[in-house]
Structures are given as C-alpha cells and as structure tokens.
Amino acid sequence: MTPDLVLFDLLLIGALLALASACLFSAELQRAVILFIVFGLLLTLVWARLQAPDVALAEAAIGAGLSGALLLAAARRLARRGGRPEDRP
C-alpha cells in the first residue's frame, strides 16, 4: 500500500462526498440533478479504483446516463409547468 494511493483515495472520497452534499443541499432542482449526474460519473471512477470494471460500465451507462436523463426530463417538466419546483408540496 503506497502513500500515493492512499492520497488518491482520500481525494476521490473527498470529492465524492463533496459532490453528494452539493447535490443534496442545492437550492435549485435542475442544478441538483446535474450534480447527481456528475456524482454518478465520479462513482464510476470509484468502481474502477476498487477493481469492479463490470460495475463501472453499468454505472457509467445507467447510474450517470439513464437516471440522469430520467430525472432531467422530470425536472424540466416541473420547471416548464411554471412555478418554482421548490415551493411545491
């Protein structure tokens, strides 16, 4: 176990947690969705780091791509219908 690798791990985990918090605490819904997509992409990197290439492939296509597209479409519909989505019950 080299110190370089531990440093890389710490950076990766720090970025992952920061992105997750930014996504969950973001005031704007569409920004939250986009941050979630970026979070999925970073998670792909984590899977590759943990030697799970099968999971990385699935995450890149599904976690980042498909759920991102689904959530974006939903956020867009909410925004287009007028009214700030944040105020909705």
Binding site: P53, D54, A56, L57, A61, I62, G65, L66
Partner: peptide, 28 residues
C-alpha cells in the same frame, strides 16, 4: 459488450443499458 461479457468486463446488463441509451438519444 454482450459477446465480450463471457470473458471480460461486460455482459447483458451493460449491453442492455447501451441499447436503452440509443433509445434515449432517439427520443431526444
């Protein structure tokens, strides 16, 4: 991905996700 999944990373789930991605692009 479907073919290579027997020996290397890949398989039905990843290949299916690719097909779905093609569907999403088409709908967009």
């Amino acid at each position: 991905l479907l073919w290579v999944g027997g020996q290397a990373p890949g398989g039905a789930f990843q290949a299916g996700a690719m097909l779905a991605a093609a569907g999403v692009v088409l709908r967009l």
